[in-house]
Amino acid sequence: MSAEEAARKPLPTPDADTAAFWRGLRDGQLLLQHCVACGNVQYYQQATCRACGREELEHRPASGRGKVHSFSVVHRAPGPAFKADLPYAVLLVELEEGPRMISTYTGGPPDEVTFDMPVELALEKVTDEVTLPRFRNI
């Protein structure tokens, strides 16, 4: 692997389960899966409901708001591509709709992040096809 390749951040590769999620972000909205059978709301995209095992799932727009359930500030890059971002905060956000999702903090220094801090979705367009979900303080 060349130094140039090592300095390039990996991008998500949508599959059959996650394609709708990534299209939604590209189009400006966070989509969550809702089970028509039992009402469960899930973030991590998959073919079946984690609560009841049924396949009757539909994607619905989420509010994009939540609160920081937990976080960690990264001071040591996991690879060359992330060195310029140091330090940065990795968040576990509890969305208003219930599911939790892992993302990163944007819009301020990582030391301002606190537990239960209210946050909202901040979309980061990386390419014409890939938009990443990040969160900022509200």
Score class of each variant (00 low, 15 high):
50 R>G: 13
129 E>G: 11
125 K>H: 02
16 A>P: 01
123 L>R: 12
84 A>M: 11
64 G>T: 15
34 H>W: 01
122 A>M: 03
105 Y>G: 04
41 V>E: 04
21 F>N: 01
30 L>T: 05
124 E>V: 08
135 F>T: 07
42 Q>P: 01
95 L>S: 14
64 G>A: 08
62 A>W: 02
106 T>H: 00
133 P>A: 14
31 L>V: 02
50 R>A: 13
52 C>F: 02
137 N>V: 12
44 Y>N: 13
98 G>Y: 04
24 G>M: 14
42 Q>M: 05
19 A>K: 13
82 F>W: 11
103 S>I: 00
14 P>T: 14
59 H>V: 00
57 L>M: 03
92 L>G: 06
52 C>N: 11
137 N>Y: 09
56 E>V: 01
118 P>L: 10
50 R>Y: 07
36 V>S: 07
23 R>K: 09
37 A>F: 00
16 A>D: 06
117 M>C: 10
125 K>E: 01
103 S>K: 13
117 M>P: 05
17 D>I: 06
40 N>R: 13
36 V>H: 05
73 V>R: 12
79 G>M: 11
85 D>E: 15
24 G>C: 11
43 Y>N: 13
19 A>S: 10
12 P>A: 08
33 Q>A: 11
131 T>V: 05
28 G>R: 15
105 Y>M: 10
61 P>M: 05
103 S>D: 00
10 P>D: 03
11 L>T: 03
67 K>Q: 06
115 F>S: 06
21 F>L: 08
29 Q>L: 08
24 G>R: 13
102 I>M: 10
104 T>V: 10
39 G>H: 06
51 A>S: 15
38 C>M: 09
7 A>D: 05
21 F>E: 00
